[in-house]
């Protein structure tokens, strides 16, 4: 894919240089500009796709966490031990703060290695961590702190205590969910 694109651009450049050599026209040849337009669309679409993908990661993690919360509260209401569910819930809430698990962090690092910063300006302003797309630093802290509190509840958790923490997760998630997709 990448090779084909490079080849196409090289061919266009060759055509353009041959065409220019035969006239006094100084404008960049139209086919090259058109191709650049197409490339720009692709780049911007890719950035939008990245936003959508991270949004999906957050959404699926939230849904997963919501399901685990349901199982945990059901167990607690039945007087059963819900430690495993509570730890899973804590891990999922932390992952929301981290825009995914460690594997996602590795992808994010790879993008940074390639010089791609989704929110370059927001990073400079201290709003986003490097490479983060949706979760602001402030939201990240809320998710991480809440995850730790949930984890600490452990075997002494009650439904009320869990729901109280979940409300914080819910509120932060809704705030991010209501955020405007980039470019719109």
């Amino acid at each position: 894919m990448k090779k084909k694109l490079v080849l196409a651009i090289c061919v266009l450049a060759l055509i353009g240089s041959v065409a220019n050599a035969q006239s006094n026209e100084t404008a960049t040849p139209r086919p090259i500009v058109d191709t650049y337009e197409t490339l720009a669309d692709t780049i911007l679409a890719a950035k939008q796709t990245e936003w959508n993908l991270v949004h999906t990661i957050l959404g699926t993690t939230y849904s997963h966490a919501e399901g685990v919360l349901g199982r945990a509260t059901a167990k607690l209401d039945a007087g059963q031990n819900a430690s495993a569910e509570i730890e899973t819930l804590a891990a999922l809430v932390a992952q929301m703060g981290n825009e995914g698990d460690a594997s996602v962090a590795a992808v994010r690092k790879r993008l940074l290695e390639g010089g791609h910063h989704h929110n370059a300006q927001g990073e400079e302003q201290g709003i986003y961590d490097e490479g983060f797309v949706i979760v602001t630093r402030a939201s990240k802290k809320v998710f991480l702190d809440t995850a730790t509190r949930i984890g600490k509840l452990g075997s002494s958790a009650t439904t009320d205590a869990l729901q109280k923490e979940w409300k914080r997760v819910q509120g932060e998630f809704r705030k991010l969910h209501a955020g405007t997709p980039m470019g719109h």
């Binding site: 730890e87 891990a91 809430v93 932390a94 992952q95 981290n98 730790t148 949930i150 984890g151």
Partner: peptide, 9 residues
Amino acid sequence: FKETGLWSG
């Protein structure tokens, strides 16, 4: 092992 760093502080 379980990696608990993210939510253990």
